[in-house]
Design a protein around this nucleic acid. Structure first.
Length: 258
DNA sequence: ATGGTTGCTTAGCAA
């Protein structure tokens, strides 16, 4: 079973690339982030014609997440089920057989001394609360998405420059550690313990040309699920060419049938 | 990480 995650940065402008990528890599499940479109503007027909079902939580202008799947999925949650309603569309949870999958778009956080960073950390705390309430580390569970966290300096090409950013600071890496402590494993790092792999390059500053990259898109899995991971890669090629997303897709293959 | 770029929306925000 191939599971992938990709921040497409507008599903409408990336429609052609998305369909081509589905055809090329044939994921069983693809989690998307930053749709930047309401449900009605999602490219339902193109995705269906590519052979995929879709569950979508859209939003005008910003955010928006989806899960595309070869087999139909049952939607378990759109946004957090308890507490104040999150006005931003950043979470979608689905089930396919014994497997539960979340597509997450963690807030970026802007600057460390900002309300947005407070929201980012509170949002991550709500993810943990969601896991505590609804899941167990012993089940087959995968969290996919743009976490806007580079877990270690190995995940940052120019770590000194990014050290005190919202993607790399101690506070946010502490929040990442709490996800691992809950019982989640970074599948890409498990398979490639020492490789410099990046998933995002800023449009600004010629980030890709200079390979000023960070690994902030992740596939986390519970131990029984991570034990089935066989292969993992970042599709850096997808960042090239005309009108790429600023993120590349991340892929993990599991010895798991649906 | 000043600016730089991209996307949505249509001047300014978010990333």
């Amino acid at each position: 079973m191939r599971i992938a995650t990709w921040n497409v940065n507008s599903v409408r402008i990336r429609q052609e690339r998305l369909v081509a990528w589905l055809g090329r890599y044939q994921p069983d499940l693809l989690c998307l982030q930053e749709l930047k479109a309401v449900d009605a503007d999602f490219p339902w027909d193109a995705v269906r014609d590519a052979g995929y079902h879709a569950a979508v939580v859209g939003q005008k202008t910003y955010n928006g997440v989806a899960v595309l799947s070869k087999q139909p999925c049952e939607v378990l949650a759109k946004n957090f089920a308890v507490g104040d309603a999150d006005p931003q569309a950043r979470l979608l949870e689905v089930r396919q057989g014994p497997l539960r999958v979340l597509s997450l778009y963690v807030p970026n956080g802007s600057e460390i001394d900002s309300e947005k960073f407070v929201y980012k950390r509170a949002w991550l705390a709500r993810v943990l609360d969601h896991l505590d309430r609804t899941a167990q580390p012993s089940e087959l569970l995968v969290l996919c998405g743009d976490f806007n966290i580079a877990p270690t300096d190995l995940d940052v090409r120019n770590s000194a420059a990014w050290r005190d950013s919202v993607l790399c600071c101690d506070a946010i890496r502490g929040d990442w550690q709490r996800l691992l402590d809950w019982g989640l494993i970074d599948c890409v790092r498990q398979i490639h313990p020492q490789e410099r792999l990046f998933s995002w390059w800023d449009y600004r500053n010629l980030g890709f040309i200079k390979n000023d990259g960070l690994r902030i898109d992740h596939i986390l899995a519970t131990a029984p699920c991570a034990a089935l991971a066989r292969e993992a890669f970042v599709d850096r090629e997808e960042r090239k060419g005309d009108k790429p997303s600023d993120h590349a897709p991340v892929v993990v293959d599991f010895d798991l049938a649906v």
